[in-house]
Amino acid sequence: METAEKKIILQVDHLKQYFPVKKDSFFKPKAYVKAVDDISFELYEGETLSIVGESGCGKSTTGRAILRLDEPTDGKVHYMGQDILGLNKKEMRKLRGDLQVIFQDPFASLNPRQTVKQILNEAMAIQEVVDKPKRKDRMLELLGYVGLSAESLDRYPHEFSGGQRQRIGIARALAVDPKLIICDEAVSALDVSIQAQILNLLKNLQKQFKLTFLFISHDLSVVRHISDRVMVMYLGKVVEIAEKKELFDSPLHPYTQALLSSIPVPDPTLKRDRVILKGDVPSPIDPPRGCRFHTRCPFAVEKCKQEEPPLRELVKNHFVSCHIAEDLPV
C-alpha cells in the first residue's frame, strides 16, 4: 500500500461547517454549532478511509459538506484537482456522477412511489451515463452486481427487506459509474448476518470497479474490517489519523485508546483493562478551550486547557493531535 504511487482523489483543506442556532435575544451575538471545525485530510484513489467517532463529532457533516449537501462555511475541497466549492449548480450536478453516497436508512433515501426500475432509470437519465435503449440491460447488470433478481425491477422499496433495500441503494449509486462513494453509516441499521453480506458486497464492488470509499461509521469492528486508513474525530476536530493496523494496534490519542477499549468484544475469555471515560461529550456550541478532549481526558495537563494541539505526524503516516502523546503510558 505505502510503496505504490498514491494518487490523491480528494483533498479537503481547513473545512468548516458551522450551523447557526436560534438567537435568544437581539443583543446577544449569534451562536453557532461548530459541527466541523477546521479539518484537513486527503483521500487516495482506490482506498477506503473511514471516519469514526461518536454522535455529534461531525463525521456525517463532513461527508455532507464534501458533497455540498450542506454548503460548507469555509475551507476548500478539491476533487481530482478541481475546486468543488467553486462549481455552479450545473457543474456540481455533473460531478455528482463521480461522487455518490449511500445512506444509513435505505427506506428514507428511496422514493417509496417508484419501482426499482424507475429509481435506477432516474439516476442514469440525470447523469446521462447510458443511452435509453441500453438502460434495461444495464439495470439487469446492476442488479446482478448487488445480488438481486431480475424480478425486483418492477417492485417497490417496501416489498424488500432492510438488507435488500440497502442493495438497491448501492445499485443506484453504481448506476452512474461513480469513482468515489461516501458510505454514511451504510450498514448500521442492519442485523449482523445481513451486515456481513453488505460489507462483503461493498468490498467486492470496490475491487471490481476500483472505487474509493469514504466510510463513515460509529462501529469500530466494521471499520476495522473495511478500511485501509482510519480517521478519528471528536467534537468537530480530527484527533488521530493513521493506517488501520497502526491505529488499532497502537493508538496514540487518549480518546482513541478509550474508544477502542470501550468496544464490547464477543469473547468472554478476554480480560482487558478498560479505560472508562467520565462524563459526556461537551456541547459543540461552546466547545472547551484548548484541547477539546481535556474535560474527559484522564491525562490532561495545564497546557491542554490553554492551547489547542496541532495535528502532528508522530510516527510515519500516523498523525495525532495531542500535546502529550509521547508521554502517555502504553
Partner: peptide, 15 residues
Amino acid sequence: SLPKIHEDQDELITI
C-alpha cells in the same frame, strides 16, 4: 458474521 476487532479477515462468512 461478526467483523473481528482483533484480527484481519478478507471476507466475512455470511448466513
